[in-house]
Amino acid sequence: MKIAICIKQVPGSNELTMDQEKGILQREDGRVKMNPYDLVAIETALQIKEKYKEVVITSFSMGPKRAREVILSSYAMGVDQGVLITDPKFIGSDVYATALTLSKGISLNEEFDIVICGRQTTDGDTGQVGPAIAEHLGIPHIYGVIAIDKIEEKHIFLSQQIENKKISLRVKMPCVLVISKEAYIPRLPSLKLKLEAKKKKIKIMSFEDLNDSDIRKFGLEGSPTQVEKIYFPNKSKKETLLSGNANVIVDAIIERLKGEKLI
């Protein structure tokens, strides 16, 4: 069985800078980390590998050259091989162009049985890349997967959480699974695998490798999303001091919660 996972390097903190002119996040400076939602995608793939025979996991990341760090991190968790899709031509990609680029990279490598994505990223935050990859690949996707229950020759049995309902599904492979953060607690990289990771190869793909010479489909030009303005939400801090005995304070808190429609 062949599993592809999509992972992304995201800013390490919430203090981001924006290119107001282009309407994109500036990622060159500052610390970076693996998108935490993608760690759950990796864990899902690793759990499948531990349970079933002959599973090969390949991680795909689209980003600058330094995004190779997230591929190495995936190796340190137990992923077998990795592909970095990197080219200055991809800068400024929105969700549509990102999904297109990733889907091209995935389809040009192997015939994967399962493509696994995290639910969203902590920077772009759209939650749409997984489903969009499925559209580009022409295969079904399942959103909100909380457990892989069983895998048979052509089908995967899984649990999906939609609001308060848990649904059991049988899905024909190949398919894209978008994993909920609550599905699994991701393992931490092991020292042994982390040290071995540096010695493993990463396949690099650029625009020229995608078998599509129409640059208008990629990067900023291929991104239909128009960002008009980027700004931080106003932060307002209001403190109210409640006084009185415990009963009075409890009543006041309950009233306040009711007022805010929280209870």
Binding site: S13, R31, V32, K33, L188, P189, S190, L191, K192
Partner: peptide, 17 residues
């Protein structure tokens, strides 16, 4: 079990440990 050792790098990541 030498695979049980946790190892993280980078200021953001080691905050977990």
């Amino acid at each position: 079990d030498d695979t049980s050792t946790w190892a993280l790098s980078g200021f953001e990541e080691i905050e977990k440990l």
